[in-house]
Write a protein that binds this DNA or RNA. Sequence first.
DNA 1: GCCATCGATGTAAGCGCTTACATAGATCGC
DNA 2: GCGATCTATGTAAGCGCTTACATCGATGGC
Lengths: 359, 359
Amino acid sequence: MSERDPKPGPAPRASDARPVSGKPRAPRAVDVAAAAEVSIATVSRVFNNPEKVAPAIRERVLATAKAMGWMPHAAGSALARRRTSIVGAVIPTLDNEVFAAQVGAMQAAFADRGITLLLSCFNYDQDQAAHDVQAMLARGVEALAIVGEAHRPDLFASIQARHIPYVVTYSHRPDSPHPCIGFDNRQAFHTIARHLLDLGHETIGVIIQPTAGNDRVSARLDGVRAALAERGLGIRPQHLCEGEWSIDFGRQSVRAMLATDPPPTAVICGNDYLALGALLEARAMGLSVPHDLSITGFDDIAISRQLDPPLTTMHVDNHEIGRRAAAYLLACLEGSRPAKLPPLVPTLIRRGTTAVPHT
Amino acid sequence: MSERDPKPGPAPRASDARPVSGKPRAPRAVDVAAAAEVSIATVSRVFNNPEKVAPAIRERVLATAKAMGWMPHAAGSALARRRTSIVGAVIPTLDNEVFAAQVGAMQAAFADRGITLLLSCFNYDQDQAAHDVQAMLARGVEALAIVGEAHRPDLFASIQARHIPYVVTYSHRPDSPHPCIGFDNRQAFHTIARHLLDLGHETIGVIIQPTAGNDRVSARLDGVRAALAERGLGIRPQHLCEGEWSIDFGRQSVRAMLATDPPPTAVICGNDYLALGALLEARAMGLSVPHDLSITGFDDIAISRQLDPPLTTMHVDNHEIGRRAAAYLLACLEGSRPAKLPPLVPTLIRRGTTAVPHT
DNA sequence: GCCATCGATGTAAGCGCTTACATAGATCGC
DNA sequence: GCGATCTATGTAAGCGCTTACATCGATGGC
């Protein structure tokens, strides 16, 4: 302690300019302030309220900061400012193009405003989702976008306890207690089923993702059942396959279904991946689509329009969902309480995989 | 100020238990400490070094915290601990299944260790990438994974200045100055080209993503050229189409190429999306693949094996790249300086789109 | 029975930043 | 020419947390 160090501070600091010892610490605001011969407050102002500091000084500070490679450290400023500028996105998985698109769009929209996106994938596991949300809250996210509303009640409770804005995506029940950006899954599948019914189909199969703990999927199935019921029809048990959304599951399901008697003349699939599988397998089995079998998908992923025949499906603008979710949350953060957004309306794209039944 | 408040603190606090005024503030460690009748240090220990506090007290604190809905606030602890437990992933876009898979795998691997993933998509724009990295550094990321090494030099310089571990993915030049997790793009495309040459093709077209500012793509093109050169062949200018990786670009490129004289007997595509387009368009034009035209892809995305005929391509395990990148960074963070990882080796999957040339 | 030892808990000093408030020149009206 | 006013800058008090160090009983050896 023979140095001319006034304070007995225990930790050696970079600002001590001691050539000894290990890794150089990152420069701090006070280092920049010292180098630019201003106070630390001025440094801070240069970065947060530049108009409040004289141009000459401003330039000097900026130059010094740049030279030293300094920029405000987010943790410190988050603490002082009580704003983290972080928002979280909670989705099932990035392996589905649909959610990847939503996240991509949100990320872009937030980046414009200097907000960083924290991502979590819960893999269709409600406990995981609840846990991830906790972790995000601990990180101080200022807003949250969550796919679906079939989550543990404590998930929403803990968000609400923090009084931060949030939005549920991909769902849009008219009477949902949550702010939603999405579409009415039930209605959408009602529309698809009607399309098939109107073509004259009466024996309709369904290949769909697991409904357990997934409000969107349950709603889709409900929509189909409702449309059929209106015509006095139903789904035969052997014509309902529920399982992971994968091309392979679509394939094996359609194969199983076509082995029943009578086989369905049309198959409604819970998403395009399943429909792809159904289409490919039907063709592999020597069937002509749509002549022998009509097939519908949902989502309109990139590949769907490219197939031969191109897939009849419903188009959902996933980037738009991401953009709207971001816009909504941004508006909340800026203090306005935006009006409840209208639902998106997926549009039926009649392409080549549906036709009047042959039999 | 007639209250029995000892300090003249200006900001009203939740701990003042004043029923008046607006939003309730989130509880802090000191509130929990007070409620559990321990010191704030004990609260902190319960959450960070639980073995250091007596079981009875530990339970009491835990219960109190839970009741109050408290958990350590990340910004505060990041500051005190000088660890943010955040790592960043910098990728071109989530719209490509390949990068989405990598990010998904990294996210899962990090989540296990309590580390949060910050995501940024630079859309193949080097300036954007450099900017994003800056922002991440300001956020205090402790490590960084970046797709590709064709970035502005200051991007790497600023990472290195911070002395944080980083890794470049999807590249693996033997003499790269960066730690890489990926494969040798040049070698991989050399292999593909050889496959076609060995089948007897001599007029080979290439449909590829933009090479500018993309080291991976440039390497791929180099690999093809090298393999052709070994047989005294080259790529004719009219047989080289460079553009955005999209199914549509694949389609229009193959159409253009087949209009040349002589047309290529085989087309090497820079990725599976392009190959998909090429395949679909060739078929739409009435060609038989692979009889009239051989086509190769790269990446082996989910749909590729499902097509009819299934696509000959090279399989890359993108989840594995994510896992390895995460493992490498994790190891660095734990202090070990792991040995340079060996490259992944993409494997050629000969499926149905390549055969001996017909002509 | 007394002192050294040890384990559990508390005290307080920051972590790097923002910002309300204080201060000190400069400007201006009369 | 002097006080009022204003503007540019500085001072210092936190933001919520962790942790080195201090403290204080309890334990145990002799």
